[in-house]
């Protein structure tokens, strides 16, 4: 079973690959650093890519659009959302 840290590390690698962040490594992305505007400086097109990433990699559909800012605030909030909504539970 995947730990929260393992899930966050996996998410960082997937974000880098999906968003083509060639100059970044997982170490460059803080667990709690904001993904949008500050931090990585992602934008609305990236948000669409992250929604597709959740659906494709974790089979999770973001049911309410208004949850987006909260879910995609940081790698940790994404990982928590995945943990809550995934049939495969992670350990703390």
């Amino acid at each position: 079973m995947q730990t929260m840290n393992e899930l966050m590390d996996q998410l960082k690698r997937q974000i880098i690959e999906r968003l083509n962040l060639k100059d970044h490594t997982p170490k460059d992305i803080g667990d709690d650093a904001p993904l949008f505007v500050e931090g990585l400086g992602l934008d609305s097109i990236d948000a669409l890519e992250l929604i597709v990433l959740l659906q494709q990699e974790y089979n999770i559909k973001l049911s309410r659009a208004e949850d987006g800012p909260k879910v995609f605030h940081s790698v940790r909030t994404m990982a928590e959302y995945i943990t809550e909504h995934s049939p495969e539970k992670t350990t703390a």
């Binding site: 097109i45 669409l48 890519e49 597709v52 659906q55 494709q56």
Partner: peptide
């Protein structure tokens, strides 16, 4: 690949 259910937003745009 995604059986026409998922689009790649950036490439599409």
């Amino acid at each position: 690949d995604n059986k026409e259910e998922l689009l790649s937003p950036t490439a599409f745009i």
